[in-house]
Nucleic acid binder design. Sequence first.
DNA 1: CGTACACGCTATAGTGGCTATAGGGTCAAG
DNA 2: CTTGACCCTATAGCCACTATAGCGTGTACG
Lengths: 132, 132
Amino acid sequence: MKSLSIGDLAKATGVKVVTIRYYEQAGLIPPPLRTEGNYRAYTADDVRRLQFVRRLRALGFTLDQIRDLLLLSSEKNQACNAVDRMTKRHLKEVQQKLHDLQLLASELERLSQCCQGKGRIAECRIIEALAP
Amino acid sequence: MKSLSIGDLAKATGVKVVTIRYYEQAGLIPPPLRTEGNYRAYTADDVRRLQFVRRLRALGFTLDQIRDLLLLSSEKNQACNAVDRMTKRHLKEVQQKLHDLQLLASELERLSQCCQGKGRIAECRIIEALAP
DNA sequence: CGTACACGCTATAGTGGCTATAGGGTCAAG
DNA sequence: CTTGACCCTATAGCCACTATAGCGTGTACG
């Protein structure tokens, strides 16, 4: 049973060393055992847990939500209703953001088409369009 | 020439009072004159400037970018090339984010369809899909 | 005139999710 | 035995606000 240093864990999961320590102090991952030299010593289980966290982060869940999901996922006998609800609510938020960003992009497209960067500021269409 | 209190300016622009003070100390808007009672006294010009800031913020420009754009927009004789470049670069970033968010949404959709919240955690498809 | 209450002021700390820095200690290779 | 890669803690910084504490001001009503 050889253990992993924090650097090994970082490589195995794609999470930066500093971020791993941050997750530990934020209570997302449990404090691991220490070596004689006071180095953190991780196990294969820690790799799995951190990968779980990383995937949820990549999906845009907050650390708070991830804490909840970690707690839920360890209670194998509980109804998974809550997990489903969190996912659907998060999806809704993402869809809203997507919508906003689409409006934003088309507004920026409109702006960037109306000025070709050839004139002076005084007759710049972008500034004109934005100034009241 | 009656002047506006910070609350009036807030109402006129939709920017919160605290945020206006923050913008002032961040150097986005100039410190206004003060009344006898040390209240900030704004002018119609300040309303325009703050609306300009607010629109750029709504388009997702950072405060740094807005500082630059304010500087540029006051130099009427300069080429508006820089404004155009900033807009186009920002558009690219927004389009990238849009793309990422689209992937994210479809992943979340997939997840939220595979679990109907009826079972127990042990066989929850969402947790299964995320856990390694 | 008094007082209640909205509004204003400054200064400071907190938010989220990291990232950077300072100032050290540990360990394996050459 | 020293070099250099890695590790440790503690603290501060980032962005764009937001919240809080502890005051002062201005006005409407009785």
